[in-house]
């Protein structure tokens, strides 16, 4: 029997969907090995996040609400999460493989003497954790040999869990993280302002490459607007300053699997494919027919993106009236 503690992800006081993708993994784990799961909500003024999690069948929603936890400082969050796991007897701690999860969870693992498996995409029949390695060219099945286990979950590999009704009790965690965080000071956050859906949650993504140059926004934004899509980018486009870092899709950026993915002027390097090749439908628009992106695309259009994308935008707009 296991007790699984799920680190909830939230932003500006609202629950993020990746938490429910992570929950889907936790439910699979509990179904296979037996036991129950609880949520951990860390932050400041996060009451609404806790409330939003009450209907998902957890034994409890533990809330560590503290001014010093307002930003996810890894040393502080890692300690509070580990202390909570110990106090409730959780032997498995899971969280999304977001930048916060990647930053915090290893520190929790050390405090619990736990091995950690990163970026899990499946629980295998034999109970191993499947995870992409070598940019997803191979899948590694890994076992954690310690009694306590820490796991980060690739959100795009699990469908968001549904609510089950009921009302899990909310339990306050007495947390004093001040000591753990005292050698780290939050300075500032420079957020990407966007009214578009989050890349991790979008059903449709319009991604652009370096070839769009300073017309990156002019090409991708109208198409994204008409489709209600999120915008992504190749690493090269971000490196050259045509798109913010938050847009980067790939092995070392965001990993996405939307219903529909437009790769516009993206060559399809192995590192980019690692971040999007599990999309349901892939459309590639590129003027060079030899680019590797066409080897994974369901629909390829060999054309100049500066001409084809505005035309595509206009036609979809006309369809949608």
């Amino acid at each position: 029997m296991s007790k699984v503690l799920i680190l909830a992800e939230h932003d500006k006081g609202a629950l993020k969907k990746v938490t429910l993708n992570t929950l889907a993994f936790a439910r699979q784990y509990v179904a296979k090995f037996g036991g129950s799961y609880d949520f951990a909500v860390l932050g400041h003024n996060v009451g609404a996040v806790a409330t939003a999690l009450q209907g998902f069948g957890a034994g409890a929603v533990h809330v560590a609400d503290h001014a010093d936890l307002a930003h996810p400082i890894a040393s502080a969050w890692g300690k509070v999460l580990a202390d909570l796991a110990k106090s409730i007897g959780a032997d498995v701690v899971v969280g999304p493989a977001s930048t916060t999860g990647k930053d915090v969870l290893p520190r929790t693992a050390v405090r619990l003497g736990a091995g950690m498996a990163s970026d899990i995409i499946a629980l295998t029949d034999s109970g191993a954790f499947a995870r992409p390695m070598w940019a997803g060219n191979l899948t590694g099945n890994v076992k954690i040999s310690t009694a306590n286990k820490v796991i980060s979950v690739r959100a795009s590999a699990f469908d968001a869990a549904e609510a089950t009704g009921g009302s899990s009790p909310i339990q306050a965690v007495a947390a004093d993280p001040a000591l753990a965080g005292s050698r780290v000071k939050f300075v500032s956050f420079d957020g990407v302002q966007s009214s578009r859906p989050d890349l991790a949650e979008a059903a449709i993504i319009v991604a652009g490459g370096r070839g769009l140059k300073d017309r990156f926004g002019a090409v991708t934004e109208p198409l994204a607007d008409v489709l209600g899509a999120a915008i992504g980018a190749s690493r090269a486009a971000v490196d050259d300053g045509f798109a913010p870092n938050d847009y980067q899709i790939g092995q070392t950026g965001k990993v996405v699997a939307p219903q529909l993915y437009f790769a516009i002027a993206i060559s399809g390097a192995v590192q980019h494919l690692a971040g999007m090749k599990n999309s349901k439908v892939i459309v590639a628009i590129n003027k060079n027919a030899d680019e590797p992106i066409f080897k994974v695309a369901d629909y390829g259009l060999v054309a100049d993106a500066f001409v084809a994308v505005p035309e595509l935008t206009a036609q979809i707009k006309a369809l949608r009236g």
Binding site: G115, N137, L138, K277, V296, Y299
Partner: peptide, 17 residues
């Protein structure tokens, strides 16, 4: 604490039209 017990090749995508 963590051991790779097996590697597999994920099923690839096929080029479309």
């Amino acid at each position: 604490k963590v051991q790779v017990v097996g590697l597999t090749t994920p099923s690839g995508r096929k080029a479309g039209v």
